[in-house]
């Protein structure tokens, strides 16, 4: 689920980082006033709890050898409310990026949106909309499962949207969307099961902790409307991508059909459509490299030499750096 730098383009990265920063800033300034030291300590420890809880794995049915674990977005959102949950989960995503190198620096905006912001809000509002103000236990548990599934789906659709808008991948939108949605249906269902299990464990063991969650169901109608709007927007984004999948796949139009692997493409490099696609790439890649590429097609051998020189030169450079570092570094003390 964590996007890497390479799956998004620079404009997408800029826009998502801006959006994530803006919404985090907004949330921070809103909760700043009501933040007492109790909440500060609670949020910090619960962030660490998310990491620790993700290490608690359990066997999945039907798939021997695989194991699932809690992700925690909906769990936290139901317990802390969406605003605090967003801050906690964003800090988890940032630490995952900086300390565990999961997800890239430029994809941080995407990851915060996909993993923290959207699942928290979707999960919270769906949970509120379904759970209502009843104290019916089955209804609460059903709400948790549906909220988990929808939160996971919303995040996965956003991954597809960001990757497709970036045009880095070659996978057709339909296939990609179906795969991601399918996988995250399973992930969301598993997440729902474990969330429900934890919530019911907590209600039996520490009912005093859980009272606040089940008691106040005041904003259920508002919650229903907001969750519907969010889900509609995300579904619309997914479907609009599917709908414009064909024109969007300008560069796939001249490619081979994926359903017939032994199909040999007859088109050669002079084809107009490839030129158009290249031109298009030149435009979206910000670096108009297609003229240079044309030159390399005319003189493949000389281009080959320059690139070989680049590779060998880089390797030699690294070798020299390594050697110098080795020679210049003071001898290490033997204790280590």
């Amino acid at each position: 689920m964590h996007m890497a730098n390479e799956l998004i383009s620079i404009p997408v990265s800029g826009v998502t980082i801006g959006a994530a920063a803006a919404s985090l800033g907004l949330i921070c300034s809103r909760i700043r006033r009501e933040l007492v030291s109790e909440k500060i300590a609670l949020m910090g420890v619960l962030g660490a709890f998310v990491f620790a809880a993700q290490m608690v794995n359990f066997q999945l049915p039907l798939m021997p050898g695989t194991s699932g674990h809690l992700i925690g977005a909906v769990f936290l959102a139901t317990i802390l409310g969406p605003n605090l949950a967003v801050i906690v989960l964003s800090s988890v995503v940032i630490i995952q990026c900086l300390l565990f190198q999961d997800g890239g620096l430029l994809a941080l905006g995407c990851n915060i949106i996909n993993i923290a912001i959207v699942p928290s809000y979707v999960g919270y509002f769906v949970y509120r909309a379904i759970a209502g103000d009843r104290k019916n236990k089955t209804r609460l548990l059903a709400a948790a499962v549906v909220a988990c599934v929808l939160a996971a789906e919303a995040g996965s659709v956003l991954v597809v949207v960001e990757a497709t808008v970036s045009r880095v991948l070659l996978v057709p939108v339909g296939t990609f969307l179906a795969t991601m949605a399918g996988v995250h249906l399973l992930v969301g269902a598993m997440e729902g099961v474990i969330t429900v299990a934890i919530l019911s464990y907590l209600t039996t063991v520490r009912p005093d902790l859980m009272e606040g969650i089940t008691a106040d169901g005041i904003l259920s109608r508002k919650a229903a409307i907001i969750s519907l709007v969010i889900i509609t927007i995300i579904t619309a984004a997914g479907f609009s991508l599917l709908a414009c999948g064909k024109p969007d796949g300008l560069e796939w139009s001249y490619l081979e059909r994926p359903d017939r692997p032994d199909f040999k493409p007859l088109i050669v490099n002079e084809d107009m459509r490839i030129k158009a696609a290249d031109e298009f790439h030149g435009k979206i890649a910000l670096m108009p490299d297609y003229s240079a590429r044309g030159a390399s097609e005319e003189h493949p051998v000389s281009a080959g030499w320059t690139s070989l020189a680049g590779i060998v030169g880089s390797a030699v450079c690294m070798g020299i750096i390594w050697l110098f570092a080795k020679l210049l570094r003071p001898a290490k003390p033997a204790t280590k």
């Binding site: 030291s37 109790e38 500060i40 300590a41 609670l42 910090g44 420890v45 619960l46 660490a48 709890f49 620790a52 809880a53 608690v56 794995n57 359990f58 066997q59 674990h69 809690l70 099961v193 474990i194 299990a197 934890i198 019911s200 464990y201 907590l202 063991v205 520490r206 902790l209």
Partner: peptide, 24 residues
């Protein structure tokens, strides 16, 4: 298995909350 995992995560959660109260 799920029940066990949930009990583990749940007890971890309770201990986290207690820790945070002590920190507070």
């Amino acid at each position: 298995e799920t029940e066990i995992a949930a009990a583990m995560a749940g007890s971890l959660f309770i201990r986290s909350i207690e820790t945070s109260q002590k920190i507070h």
